[in-house]
Amino acid sequence: MDFLRPACWSEALEAKANHPDATPVAGGTDVMVELNFDHRRPETLLDLTRIEQLREWSRTERDGVASVRIGAGVPYSRLIDELGTSLPGLAMASRTVGSPQIRNRGTLGGNLASASPAGDGHPPLLASNAEIELESVRGSRTIPIGEFFTGVKRTAMAPDELVAAVHVPVSTGPQQFSKIGTRNAMVIAVCTFAIALWPDRRGVGTGLGSAAPTPRPATEAEAFLAAALTDADQWDDPRPLPDSITERFGELVAHAAAPIDDVRGTAGYRTHALRVLARRTLSWAWDEYRGDTEFSGRQRCA
């Protein structure tokens, strides 16, 4: 087995171009497990850990939207510590990943490239309409997260491409993430749900994990809720949500799922749990939104 250790990004892209079947290694928390289980026997490993630039994040503006560009090699522990305020949903999801050791090593780029239906980083990125920046010696392109996952553990990445970064809009409203597991830590998701409210654009974002062959948004649920909030003038004058709204939202989220039975849970349980999580996370997000609006309203008056 060859072990390539590029010292910088351009060298990494060169290496990937020359060895399209090389397996990149970032934190190694997926790759090493696959090697151990003998699920994968790569001829070449491409170590990305020496590339400083992959471990950086910065604030940017994309099409007038304040965003954070997160290098593919930023580990979960830093997403939690450094981006908890601007990207709360992603930070919440990061807190549920593995153990402290895994959070120190595991990266968002690795989570994306693995493209497991159970990847905990994906739902909050879906709820935020994040974009994935891919790069090769041929150049760089950016695709919406919704187009990135093409099947179970399959992505839109070309063989010579690497994930360079993820662009995530800075939150403008409350975000929540919930994960069901059958133990209280260190567990692969039975299912997950992410929600983000975007008062600036009067939008709602969602993401479902472990609920279909690929992570996916609950598009109908998003549209329903956004319309319901707008119709009732809830964005400017938030009042308690009627049960009928949270119920319907939960139903539509459950409806968006296409889960399977496996060793971690049944399809029936997953659908049920998603409905419950959708209702709960919406109510938490909404409570927070009402609290924030009240608070900023008082400040304006003072």
Partner: peptide, 11 residues
């Protein structure tokens, strides 16, 4: 129940 996975705030 659910711990850091944030599945309930008491509900």
């Amino acid at each position: 129940p659910g711990g850091a996975s944030n599945t309930t705030h008491g509900e």
